[in-house]
Amino acid sequence: GTVGAAGGVAVEASAGVKGGGAGGGDRGARDLDQNERRRFLKGLGLAAGLALVGGVAGRLLTARQAVKQARNEVVLPRPRQPVPVVPAGAQVPGVTPYVSANDDFYRIDTALYPPQVDPSTWQLRIHGMVRNPITLTWEQLLQRPMIERYVTLACVSNEVGGDLIGNALWLGTPIKELLDEAGPLPGADQVVQRSVDGWTCGTPTAVLRDGRDALLAVGMNGEPLPVDHGFPVRMVVPGLYGYVSACKWITEIELSRFADFDAYWVPRGWSAQGPIKTESRIDTPRDGAKRSAGTVVVGGVAWAQHTGITKVEVQVDDGPWAEATLAATVSVDTWRQWSYQWEATPGDHRLRVRATDRTGQTQTSTPAPPAPDGATGWHAVQVSIG
């Protein structure tokens, strides 16, 4: 329709000019003819652009429907080890859920639209500095031994007190076993993960082989991975920020060296290696909350994935630090909730929190932005007591 209209305008204008006089009219006709030609070509380009957008949108919709159907048909394998039981008391009232629902789990990636990957055509290549290159199909992956683990993931761009962190039950095959089969060559200190859309992250090879539950994951909270979170396959690595470990829609693993290759975020100013820092957050009361004088429950979460939290302390105004009560937890690979009974007095007060991990290291009070390797500082909230 757009092309037809543009063509009609061009033809009508040309006919009108040609019906005029000679001399200067001929020059005007040429000028107008060129202008109308530009309009015609512009209209043609607009039409082509709209057709292209429409075609892309149509293909994307078709792909989404196909992948949605494929995901609905996935039957996840049973894990070879029983699912860890969340202990009683892991959840503190008023604190964010210990297990994050799939729909509520944070999403940070560079994909404008989540890639639509048909598992029937999916493959994983493990190559590079290895003795035995491996190519896995979806069916072959599902036949491998699977385990389920609760693992808390965090984004390096999370501000102090932020919510770019979540805990889920992941089903997957240990990546260590695959790497052992591939046989990394000496010097291959980096595992480059590559998404179907070309995004890369680099993980220390030693971390993926040190015995932690690093998974090539296919399930999240008892169902196939949501498309937004990497369906059909992604990586999950306890103790590292996602930008160096949590490749979604993964299709390639290349053994390399940090000296030879910089993954996506490294040239953009972020550190090549991103171990998670010990952090804590106050969830209740919220900043700016009002409470009545008397006992006020202060609660939140603390995390030091793959290291574990041993102590959380709360400070009211500039008073002494008081130790909070730690809730139960599944393992050192998840966050840990805590609570503190505060006898609140009238007035405006500042609450701060800090955590100590199993190495004895207490999180630093020095504020630092997320770049280049994670934010630091103590989370604080202001509360009014009436």
Rank of each mutant, 00 (worst) to 15 (best):
residue 220 M to S: 03
residue 206 A to L: 13
residue 208 L to E: 08
residue 192 V to S: 03
residue 213 D to N: 10
residue 192 V to A: 07
residue 179 L to F: 10
residue 220 M to L: 15
residue 183 G to E: 10
residue 221 N to I: 02
residue 182 A to Q: 05
residue 212 R to Q: 14
residue 208 L to R: 07
residue 173 T to N: 01
residue 206 A to W: 05
residue 178 L to N: 03
residue 188 A to W: 12
residue 180 D to E: 15
residue 192 V to I: 15
residue 195 S to D: 12
residue 196 V to C: 08
residue 180 D to C: 01
residue 200 T to M: 01
residue 172 G to N: 05
residue 187 G to P: 04
residue 189 D to W: 13
residue 197 D to S: 14
residue 171 L to E: 01
residue 169 L to T: 07
residue 211 G to W: 11
residue 175 I to T: 02
residue 199 W to D: 09
residue 217 A to Y: 08
residue 199 W to K: 00
residue 194 R to A: 06
residue 219 G to I: 05
residue 188 A to M: 13
residue 217 A to G: 06
residue 169 L to E: 03
residue 210 D to C: 12
residue 220 M to P: 00
residue 215 L to W: 02
residue 189 D to H: 11
residue 207 V to E: 13
residue 197 D to I: 13
residue 187 G to V: 09
residue 214 A to L: 03
residue 201 C to Y: 00
residue 196 V to P: 01
residue 211 G to C: 05
residue 193 Q to I: 03
residue 198 G to M: 06
residue 212 R to E: 03
residue 201 C to E: 11
residue 201 C to V: 14
residue 201 C to Q: 08
residue 200 T to P: 03
residue 213 D to Q: 13
residue 188 A to L: 12
residue 171 L to N: 01
residue 171 L to Y: 00
residue 168 A to I: 04
residue 180 D to H: 09
residue 211 G to F: 08
residue 167 N to K: 05
residue 180 D to Q: 14
residue 185 L to A: 12
residue 202 G to Q: 00
residue 188 A to T: 03
residue 217 A to V: 05
residue 187 G to I: 11
residue 203 T to Q: 05
residue 171 L to R: 14
residue 185 L to H: 11
residue 182 A to M: 11
residue 190 Q to S: 06
residue 208 L to F: 07
residue 213 D to E: 14
residue 178 L to R: 07
residue 170 W to R: 02
residue 220 M to H: 09
residue 217 A to D: 00
residue 182 A to N: 08
residue 206 A to H: 11
residue 221 N to S: 06
residue 219 G to R: 09
residue 218 V to P: 03
residue 216 L to N: 03
residue 211 G to M: 09
residue 174 P to R: 02
residue 199 W to M: 08
residue 209 R to G: 06
residue 182 A to L: 08
residue 217 A to M: 10
residue 195 S to G: 13
residue 169 L to Y: 00
residue 220 M to W: 07
